[in-house]
Design a protein around this nucleic acid. Sequence first.
DNA 1: GTTATTATTGATAATTATATTCAATATCGG
DNA 2: CCGATATTGAATATAATTATCAATAATAAC
Lengths: 153, 153
Amino acid sequence: MTPVAQRKMERRKTLKDYISRMQLKSTKQRDVIFDEFFNNYMGKHVTVEEFYENIKKNHPKIGFATVYRTLKLFRESGIAAERDFGDGKARYEPIRSENEHHHHMICTNCGNVYEFANSQIELCLNQIAKLNQFDVKDHKLQIHGLCSSCSGS
Amino acid sequence: MTPVAQRKMERRKTLKDYISRMQLKSTKQRDVIFDEFFNNYMGKHVTVEEFYENIKKNHPKIGFATVYRTLKLFRESGIAAERDFGDGKARYEPIRSENEHHHHMICTNCGNVYEFANSQIELCLNQIAKLNQFDVKDHKLQIHGLCSSCSGS
DNA sequence: GTTATTATTGATAATTATATTCAATATCGG
DNA sequence: CCGATATTGAATATAATTATCAATAATAAC
């Protein structure tokens, strides 16, 4: 089994567990949306609208509200991250692994998003939080600017 | 002159310069909003709605759209920062000095916002940007979690 | 397997923050 | 003061998100 397939299977289990724990129900729509999301959007940052437009091509019966609610469900269950890049639209991204955490560089010209991870920053944040007796649940770090293609270098 | 008054004067000059450079006009409303903003919201993070409600008490003639547009103008001129703490409302904060840059810890329980600065993080970001040939215009860092009051410690 | 219970779906409408329109008014250079 | 141009304020438009609800699907109970 490829690492990607492996990760997908783990996410599916996490979702199923969440659904049973919260006394929700498995549905055909949720299965379809799950597959679409984890097959095509790994490493991407898709808006609800974009995602809905793509799913409609193969599954025209699925409504916007269902897509919207299912992505929220994915976030609540911990298998998707909700991102806000400041353009007024929520974006969703499949989570690769439990403890992986990365940040984003967003090009203000072309809109491309580049990911990076940096353990040094995580260390700093933990120190700061401890110093301020702050119980960290989440943190967000974004760099806005011009990517190498757009800065003309 | 107190340091606060000094900073306020510098911001006023920056705004006047921007207004003349862009061929805009000074108005009574802009003056009123400027004073209100720099007298009462230093270190705060006010929404347009909140700010408008407060200004209405002393200046009932000033409309919401004017407040909205003026805060945008303050941001464009560089005397105010626009923040997004993830609750769907833009927040505005007077900028203390040209090169001061700080980050935010936001309590998910009481909503209080705590500021912090950390030169180590700035260094990391610069390295990362250089490594990726990314021309940084801005960066945002937020920590979400429970403050010491709310975590019950 | 049938029935009862409960959650989900999908279309539509409501909500909320932001942004725009436009006639009346204020500003400012000449 | 005059004329050109920007601003104001009320109203309206836009866009994303969230809620409503009757019909339907999924699961539990029998």
